[in-house]
Structure formats: C-alpha cells, structure tokens
C-alpha cells in the first residue's frame, strides 16, 4: 500500500513538473515569435507556435483541466502582446470547443491528424477573432485576408516538426494514462 501511495505521489510530482515545463516552453515560444523571428526573418510573419502548442494540449490533455490551463496561458500571453484578455479567452474558448467536437470525428492518428487539426485550429482562430472583434471591441479589426492566410500557412509549415517535439515532451514527463490515475486522490485510488 505504501509503495502504491508513493507511486501516486511521484506521479503527482511529475504532473506538476509537466505543467511547469509546458508553461516554460510556452514562454520560450512567445519570446521566439516576438523577439527572435522578426529580427532574423523580417519578410515573413512569425509562426504562431504558441497557438500550435495550445492546439496540441487541447487535443492531447483531459479537457476540463486543459481549458483552465489555456486561460492561464492566455493570461501569460498578454505580457507579450497588446491583445485584450477578453479577446484571447473568448476566441480560444471557441477554438477549444470546436477542436473537442471534431477531434474524435477524424479517423486519423498521429502527425497527419495533428496537421489537419492544426490547420483547422489556426483557420478558425483567425475567423473567430475577426468576428468576435466586431462584437466585443470598440474598433474592430480589419479583414487583412492575405496576412491571415499567410499566417495560417506558416503555422501549417511549423506544426509538423513541433508535433514530435511536443509529443516527446508530453509522453516523456507523464503519460496520459498515468496522468488520469494521478489526478485521483491516493486514498480513493487505494480503496478502489
């Protein structure tokens, strides 16, 4: 019993470490997009790798925890951008909901499935942001169709290598099955 309890505590520690690690990665990605890419490649818009990461965790992690974690990440994001929190939260909530609805309807697995869903997620982010801006903001954003299309395309190019990096980090630190088990109270788990 003690060994089982110890194992549960270990998993809980891994869980906390995973959250801290992914938060750290998120900050690195935002810094890369805002401060590194524009100075090196100024001709093309920088890839929204923070959005790719949010799409990844929306697809891979348990939904209830993930939506609150996305809210937390959006809060962190406001430090890098002048984008209002209400726009981020509302847009990402809709994107997250859409991803949850369609993720089980795609009969594909692995990287290819992730590419399709990232394409869908990026496109829906741009569309939803545009329409919600008209509803929630005093001065709505303009269409900028070419810029948005280019942004989606660049996200699409970067999602494939990012998938393997995120997937490796995800399974290495804490497997999904272990995560589900660790979220239970050790006392309850023992008495099951």
């Amino acid at each position: 019993m003690q060994a089982r309890l110890l194992k549960m505590n270990n998993q809980r520690l891994k869980f906390y470490f995973k959250i801290v690690f992914f938060t750290f990665i998120f900050f690195i990605m935002c810094g890369f997009q805002t401060s590194f890419w524009p100075h090196i490649v100024s001709a093309l818009p920088s890839p929204q790798i923070w959005l790719i990461m949010i799409i990844f965790i929306s697809l891979q992690w348990p939904p209830l925890f993930t939506i609150f974690y996305i809210y937390f990440l959006s809060f962190c994001l406001t430090g890098f951008s002048s984008i209002p929190l209400k726009m981020l939260w509302s847009t990402l909530l809709v994107v997250f909901t859409l991803l949850q609805l369609i993720k089980n309807r795609i009969q594909l697995t692995g990287a290819f499935s992730f590419i399709i869903l990232t394409l869908f997620g990026s496109t829906s982010f741009e569309i939803i942001y545009y329409y919600l801006s008209g509803v929630l903001e005093n001065i709505p954003t303009s269409l900028m169709l070419l810029d948005r299309l280019l942004q989606v395309l660049i996200n699409f190019v970067f999602c494939y290598p990012l998938y393997y990096i995120l997937k490796s980090a995800d399974t290495l630190i804490l497997n999904e099955n272990d995560w589900v088990r660790s979220s239970k109270d050790p006392y309850e788990a023992h008495h099951e």
Binding site: G31, T34, P38, S81, S82, I83, Y129, S133, Q151
Partner: peptide
C-alpha cells in the same frame, strides 16, 4: 520585440 498577432501594431 513585435506583436504576436497581425491585428495589433505594437
């Protein structure tokens, strides 16, 4: 640094 999204110019 520059902005994260194209909708804001900062």
């Amino acid at each position: 640094g520059r902005n994260l999204v194209t909708d804001h110019n900062t």
